[in-house]
Design a binder for these strands. Structure first.
Lengths: 143, 143
DNA sequence: ATTTGTGCAAATCGTTTGCATCTGA
DNA sequence: TCAGATGCAAACGATTTGCACAAAT
């Protein structure tokens, strides 16, 4: 009885709609359903294709183009973070807080590393006048 | 008068051939020429397409498929390191020593950071029984 | 002679785009 | 009403693949 499959409660629906409106996005049916799939579960790292197939499974009427659209829009609005580790696909992370990743080379799976589990005591300055937008630490493990 | 354009010196040719033989790769014309382009210059981060066009410019007779082939083979043999940061293309790094990168978001350019310019005093253990194959630190700057 | 590498063109695959249609405010 | 969103199918671009031919040992 996932919220995506059954009728969402009014409060849920409102919460999602508010979340979207807060970043000036129209809470359309598709965005609501995708947001519910993305943020309503623990599943923090997902690919476009995977989200699309989750949507189909959940009976959500949405096209692949709209999935890509929503993922990029959400990312631009700071609701998601895009992670590029494997050149064959992009992952989108629902965790937008500062954190790092384990990357399991065999399975292609990602796992969060809380930022306080990594401490960097020395870092180079950003080149002349440029500012650092993000520091990504990826620990690759053979698994 | 690049070594790729003109006839290579006997010592150069021998050195490259030895380098390839050392990792049990046949020193074919194409691999020699590509190795020369890759390792003979300062240019440490290159894409397959860029190497291909460099090769054409240098008058080297090689196909794109062979460029991909050589890049992957060299990487498998430890002569190169593949870097995935931008999902639209793969970079190959001739620097295979432990080091990190600046990534210039606007230009898509990469710049090496010597590993002793980054110091990590706290790192999580690798998950159960798995070993860490590599730690990548990417500092993204808006430039 | 045998193995390995190369080149071409076609195939793949994730992602993007153009455009007509629909929907939310 | 009308800007913004969606869906479809075609286009894309980097990379891979199949297979015949060529080159290295």
């Amino acid at each position: 009885m996932s919220a995506a499959k059954t009728k969402k409660t009014a409060t849920n629906e409102t919460a999602l709609a508010e979340q979207l409106r807060a970043v000036s996005l129209r809470p359309t049916q598709q965005r609501m359903a995708l947001a519910d799939l993305l943020f309503g579960r623990g599943n923090s790292h997902i690919t476009a294709e995977a989200l699309y197939s989750d949507a189909l499974t959940a009976g959500v009427n949405v096209s692949l183009a709209t999935v890509y659209n929503a993922l990029h829009t959400f990312t631009a609005k700071g609701l998601l973070r895009e992670i590029t580790i494997d050149s064959t696909r992009s992952y989108f992370d629902t965790n937008v807080d500062e954190h790092h990743h384990f990357y399991f080379e065999k399975s292609g799976r990602l796992e969060d590393i809380d930022h306080n589990r990594v401490k960097m005591t020395r870092l180079p300055d950003a080149p002349e006048g440029l500012s650092v937008s993000r520091i990504d630490v990826v620990i690759r493990v053979d698994g």
